[in-house]
Design a protein around this nucleic acid. Structure first.
Lengths: 136, 136
DNA sequence: CTTACATCCGTACTTGAGTACGGAGTCAAG
DNA sequence: CTTGACTCCGTACTCAAGTACGGATGTAAG
């Protein structure tokens, strides 16, 4: 009933997610990733869930969330009490929606710049900054 | 023809943008903000454009852009040669669109969590991680 | 059984993004 | 014309997020 090794080693996990082994261990110390039990005296094994979690962390980071904030998002995944989760989710949602607005504005600026570039021949300027002015 | 002082001092600028004076100076050193000429022997003055630029930098940071990337975005604002600008804009656009997709997925997860929370009474878990799984 | 390579773990180093500090210069009010 | 607050500038410190190092242990292949 014990069969062959169940999952990837930390090295395999790290490669699969495109991060450094040390980074995984760092996230474990921060409490963002679990440390699987090591079946007697041995080496830890990681599964799909660990990989997904690790990838989530990296994606969320690219979106400008700090590791502490990501920890909060992961608390939602991990199941907290309902009212608590809801409050947290609502706070995060406000933040996320503001980011969406800003990103959409930047997207628009960039597409317009590209269009103008195609249309004109020479110098162009992009109202990049104006794109984020408060639109009232 | 020289009138009264033209704009805000660095302190005023910093307060208006909600950042530290030192931060402004730091951005100047990095080349993200200009250092206005100081009319004979005196103190620098900043205008609306400087404030907008500073605010843009902070917003872009919240979206997960590094200061180096923000420098690139600002090159577009500042007007580069057309083909160069276009190439850069196209690269950034890919990045921005991926961020939009990820953020939209997170937004959906959060709203669903909130809905479930309202509907059920007790424990809830949020498929936060699943929300960013590659959907193909 | 040895040997090569990975894990484990603690500690130390690095990098990006600021923050803090301190002395010298500036400027407006009293 | 002094005084208090602010600017200027260089240098040094801090904090988050890793990265690197190195000795001890585990483990699979020859």
């Amino acid at each position: 009933m014990k069969g062959q090794p169940k999952g990837a080693t930390i090295g395999g996990l790290a490669v699969a997610a495109g991060v450094n082994v040390e980074t995984v261990r760092f996230y474990q110390r921060k409490g963002l990733m679990r440390e699987p039990e090591r079946g007697y005296g041995s080496i830890r094994r990681y599964g799909e869930a660990d990989l997904a979690r690790l990838r989530f962390i990296r994606s969320a980071q690219r979106l400008g969330f700090s590791l502490d904030e990501i920890g909060e998002l992961l608390k939602l995944e991990d199941g907290t009490r309902c009212d608590e989760a809801r409050t947290l989710a609502e706070r995060k949602l406000v933040d996320v929606r503001q980011k969406l607005i800003d990103l959409q504005r930047i997207e628009l600026s960039l597409t317009q710049l590209i269009d103008h570039c195609v249309a004109s021949g020479g110098e162009v300027a992009c109202p990049m900054i104006a794109s984020l002015q408060e639109a009232t």
